[in-house]
Design a protein around this nucleic acid. Structure first.
Length: 632
RNA sequence: GCCGGCGUAGCUCAGCUGGCAGAGCAGCUGACUUGUAAUCAGCAGGUCGUCCGUUCGAAUCGGAUCGCCGGCUCCA
């Protein structure tokens, strides 16, 4: 007799085949359950089992449960779209992080306004209580089925599937090719919302037809859905493009798409980042160089950029001689290396450069400060002996961790990217390089993901990714191992044996681009920068006109200490000026009125803590000294 | 680059099917002389992204173009 084991040691014996749902019901653990794990395989509640198995419920609010809910919601949406827009052909419709989408070839053009209509239709179908049923069909039969329905994309998918049969899911008149599992009835789907429409190439290939993609999300409860919607709203408030304007940090102008303008307040932050960066690099044995923005085109032919990167480069001409605007700093750095004979005693040589590069990015990909056409990399090139590679990588990873985690408190993700298709050089060298990077990662004990084929054309890389406020991740830091460039430029060092040897080159960045890192910081702090980075650190608010003189005195004293300070001398109520300083996210407000002028004190208000009471100037300065400042 | 959406005052946004361009905030001026998240009143501010067209008449309709937004593709 088959025996089923369940959660908390539950056991059930049953003679005949039994539905998963019945088993769970007998255990009284069917509530809020959307599917089950049968011997670790996600399975429909309606599936029958007839032999020994472990059966565990998958609850709607679990990770797996949400995936199933969302996948089913994508089917529901596709069904609604097909009802509303006959002639619609289905592409694919998976669950994704935080939601789902479905790509469809819809004969009409849809806008965001149409989402309401589709959502209403979805609710209608959900109420029809349609059972969702699974069928296994031989491939030929499935092809016939989808051919009758003119589902050309599904047929393409079936042809590529392994095996002789495929599974389909049916709810009412709607049939989809799908592995499942799904909820057992459309009525289970209650808490969903459609979010946006966008175009997406069929199978992500630019040369294919562009389909309409509709994004949505679904949750197990109304509360969870609402919380998610609120989170999106909150995230929008942190958008660095919005805060950049409101806090007067930077702007983008139609005259220069993708080329940001930094306002004086934004420059304060960037300059502090640079101060900190420079100090930390000096401490860690880096020197700094600067190479030209424009260099002879031949250099780029020699470096391989002409062959591999030309479409992203800007070119110009000086006195009829062709030049290129640099998209990377390495070739210039090579010339500095070659400017003298290097000894093995010089290695490892760590040359940093705040290098401004220009890259032609396609117009559709530009995004605030995160994706621009001109940015400054906090670059460094390390020239090392082969036996020094691993230690140097570990050193860089330590620096990355210090800056990301200890100083800024960022969670980050590490990826190892391997040889791409259009790679330069010998595959054997690549293998060695990839292994070196992997060993360093293992040694550092950092969790990482492998990204096959995503390396640079000259070498594999370790990438460090940070997340923005709406969950998009951006590559910031990178470590790239390069055996090609030293070869191409024929660089060498003199070994202890008096012979010439080839150094290995490491390219690396920590911030990645100052622009992008700045953008991520704006979102990370929601514009409320810590004291050491704040564009204005202290704002003085005189109670009335009578106190302007004392305010000026206080200001002069604080300026003397290089504190970034301004005074709100507008003829407004105190409350109003406090409010404005709060909105501007200024860390400290200093209110000065009769009391303070008389006793030579300051009434200090901290942005998050509120009124700190009155203190003397030196007391305030002492307090400020205790605040973290990695540039000190 | 591709698909879709959007461009009205410095900012946020009204302006129905074509009929003299509006509000709030910000700015300026004045009154008030302010004590910890919005004092009141007045003034000023726009070639309705740009160009071409339809029309007696265009912010509104059509086309092109530029820019922005969301995706896709790309991202050394």
């Amino acid at each position: 007799m088959p025996e089923f084991t369940g959660p908390e040691g539950r056991v059930l014996e049953n003679e005949s085949p039994i539905k998963v749902k019945e088993i769970l019901k007998k255990w009284k653990s069917a509530k809020g359950v959307v599917a089950a794990l049968v011997d670790d395989v996600a399975t429909d509640l309606g599936a029958e089992i007839a032999s020994d198995a472990e059966v565990l419920p998958i609850e709607g609010d679990s990770r797996l449960g949400l995936q199933i809910l969302r996948h089913s919601a994508s089917h529901l949406m596709a069904q609604a779209v097909k009802r509303l827009y006959p002639g619609t052909r289905l592409g694919i419709g998976p669950a994704i992080e935080d939601g789902f989408y479905y790509d469809m070839d819809i004969p009409e053009q849809l806008g965001e306004d149409d989402l309401d209509t589709i959502e209403k239709e979805m609710r209608r179908i959900a109420k029809e209580n349609l059972p969702v049923t699974r069928e296994i069909l031989p491939k030929e039969e499935a092809e016939k089925l989808f051919a009758e329905r003119d589902e050309i994309y599904k047929i393409e998918l079936i042809k590529e599937l392994e095996g002789d049969s495929v599974t389909t899911y049916r709810q009412g008149e709607f049939v989809d090719l799908c592995r499942g599992p799904h909820v057992e009835n459309t009525s289970v789907l209650k808490h969903f919302r459609l979010l946006s429409v966008a175009g997406a190439y069929w199978r992500g290939n630019e040369s294919n037809k562009m389909l309409t993609r509709i994004y949505g999300t679904a949750f197990a409860s109304k509360e969870a859905l609402e919380e998610y919607i609120n989170r999106i709203e909150e995230a929008k408030k942190r958008d660095h493009r919005k805060l950049g304007r409101e806090l007067d940090l930077f702007s983008l102008q139609p005259e220069a798409p993708g080329f940001p303008f930094f306002h004086s307040k934004g420059m304060v932050v960037v300059n502090k980042l640079v101060d900190f960066w420079r100090k930390e690099h000096t401490r860690r044995g880096y020197t700094e160089i600067k190479t030209p923005l424009i260099l002879d085109r031949d250099l780029w032919i020699r470096s391989g950029h002409w062959d591999h990167y030309r479409e992203n480069m800007y070119f110009t001409e000086i006195d009829e001689r062709p030049f290129a605007v640099k998209p990377m700093n390495c070739p210039g750095g090579m010339l500095v290396y070659k400017s003298q004979i290097r000894s093995y005693r010089d290695l490892p040589l760590r040359m940093a450069e705040l290098g401004t590069v220009h890259r032609h990015e396609r117009s559709g990909v530009l995004h605030g400060l995160m994706r621009v056409r001109c940015f400054t990399q906090d670059d460094a090139h390390l020239y090392v002996r082969p036996d020094q590679i691993k230690d140097e990588i570990l050193g860089i990873m330590d620096l990355v961790h210090y800056i990301y985690t200890d100083v800024f408190g960022f969670p980050y993700r590490v990826e190892l990217s391997t040889r791409p298709e259009k790679a330069m050089g010998d595959p054997g060298m690549w293998e060695v390089a990839e292994r070196d990077l992997q060993e360093a990662l293992e040694e550092a004990g950092v969790p990482y993901r492998i990204n096959p084929g995503d390396g640079a054309f000259y070498g594999p890389k370790i990438d460090f990714h940070l997340e923005d406020c709406i969950g998009r991740t951006w590559q910031c830091g990178t470590i790239q191992l390069d055996f090609q460039m030293p070869e191409k430029f024929d660089i060498s060092y003199i070994g202890p044996d008096g012979a010439q040897h080839r150094p290995v080159m490491l390219h690396r960045t920590i911030y990645g681009s100052l622009e992008r890192f700045f953008g991520i910081l704006i979102e990370h702090y929601a514009g409320a920068f810590p004291y050491w980075l704040a564009p204005v650190q202290v704002r003085i608010i005189p109670v009335s006109e009578d106190h302007l003189e004392y305010a000026a005195e206080v200001k002069a004293n604080l300026m003397e200490k290089e504190i970034r300070i301004d005074t709100d001398i507008r003829d407004e109520k105190l409350g109003k000026r406090i409010r404005d300083a709060q909105i501007q996210k200024i860390p400290y407000m200093v209110v000065v009125g009769d009391r303070e002028a008389r006793t030579q004190t300051l009434a200090v208000r901290e942005r998050t803590k509120g009124d700190l009471g009155s203190m003397t100037l030196s007391g305030f300065l002492e307090h400020l000294e205790t605040l973290p400042d990695p540039t000190r």
